[in-house]
Design a protein around this nucleic acid. Sequence first.
DNA 1: ACGATGATGAAC
DNA 2: TTCATCATCGTA
Length: 173
Amino acid sequence: MRKILKQNFFNRDTKIVAKDLLGKFIIRKIGGKEISAMITETEAYDGPQDLASHASKGRTKRTDIMFGHPGYFYVYLCYGMHYMLNVVVGKKDYPAAILIRGLDKAVGPGRVTKFIRIDKKFNGKIAIPKSNLCFEDRGVKIPKNKIKKTPRIGVDYSGPVWSKKNFRFVIKD
DNA sequence: ACGATGATGAAC
DNA sequence: TTCATCATCGTA
């Protein structure tokens, strides 16, 4: 019996969900085949005040998805060549999302989307079992002392407060 | 160390 | 309509 993560998994505190996603598997169905990999690195983008988050610009056509219901994907193009895969968390009207930065088979957010073949068509889609992109709990538990917290990558522009927050979560080793 | 490459948001 | 900027990566 497979345990695909339900929408309520994402309707919790951003940092808790970011930590809990470590050790979970991302499932990508292409045709009859399935690609899966364990999540090893995440980053939290939490709330309208977070200057590193696109949502700090307010509600725009781009950020609208982050203000919506949890469990939806936010995918956008960065540096003109890499798609970033995020999943929206928290209750409706509270803008927050988690960036999937690394898998056991692909390290770096641009490589992640290349590896599981994500593009902007996934923006606004929901992570449910029948979707061709969702998350699964395979019973892997990551003990607390195996989780490393660090500042987020590539967000120096967000100022001394937000760029220094330990919102990045990595499995050690 | 740096260039590729395009969507976004803000200013004009 | 134009402009600076960017949640990165591969090559050097």
